[in-house]
């Protein structure tokens, strides 16, 4: 199975990077995700309930990151096991680039499935993977968009000037999202020094989470 996709996310690149690495954001956005945990600096585990058609399988996955360039790209390898249902493993690359004031996220996933999932789900793996990816990015957009009014209140924020300008009109709905996303954003503007420190830490974290996310899709695609 090979999946390639591109999404334009309505926020500055650095914000997208942070959000992609925030386990709270990922847990909320990945369809069926129950938990994302940090196991080592480059390693994460994730648990999710995959619901595709008649399949309701609990997956646990491991994601290992490599080639990390902060706010730009990373690669990850993952392995997901769905118990009796089967397993999936593969590799993924994610790249971020500027698109005006927004961010273009390009991803590729190569994966293979084994076990009953391969037998039963092989026919629909591509469709399911696309569906999961779409659900994730829709939720991810929603997460970033409602956070922007918060960003507006913080004129000192130098890292993501774009974010303040992008669609401040999206004030609507989803109060739970607001709180989670708001919490994420308030991390960065504190001060520039701590900001940089935070970045380093967050970068690894972020990569892990992204990796987890992709791993989770993989699991999900089955």
């Amino acid at each position: 199975m090979e999946l390639t996709g591109e999404v334009v996310i309505n926020a500055a690149r650095t914000r997208v990077w942070i959000a992609l690495n925030d386990p709270a954001v990922l847990t909320a956005c990945i369809p069926g995700c129950e938990a994302v945990e940090q196991v080592g600096p480059l390693e994460k585990t994730a648990r999710m309930l995959v619901k595709v058609g008649p399949v309701r399988a609990k997956f646990s996955g491991r994601i290992l990151m490599s080639d990390v360039v902060e706010s730009e790209r990373c690669a990850m390898t993952f392995e997901g096991s769905g118990g009796a249902a089967g397993m999936a493993r593969g590799r993924s690359q994610v790249e971020l680039s500027d698109e005006g004031e927004s961010t273009r996220l390009h991803y590729t996933v190569q994966a293979s499935v084994a076990g009953k999932l391969g037998l039963v789900g092989g026919r629909m793996i591509d469709g399911a993977a696309k569906q999961m990816a779409d659900q994730f990015f829709n939720a991810f957009q929603l997460h970033l968009a409602p956070a922007q009014p918060d960003a507006d209140k913080l004129p000192t924020e130098s890292k993501a000037p774009g974010a303040a300008q992008v669609q401040p009109l999206v004030t609507h709905s989803r109060s739970e999202d607001m709180t989670v996303a708001g919490a994420t954003v308030t991390q960065q503007p504190t001060s520039k020094l701590t900001d940089d420190m935070e970045w380093l830490r967050v970068k690894w974290f972020a990569m892990g989470v992204l990796a987890t996310a992709i791993g989770v899709w993989l699991g999900a695609q089955l």
Binding site: P54, V55, R56, A57, A85, K116, L117, V120
Partner: peptide, 14 residues
């Protein structure tokens, strides 16, 4: 014809 196969393969456990 779909559900029972799915249950027997334990792809779903309602």
């Amino acid at each position: 014809q779909t559900l029972l196969a799915t249950l027997n393969m334990r792809l779903s456990e309602p």
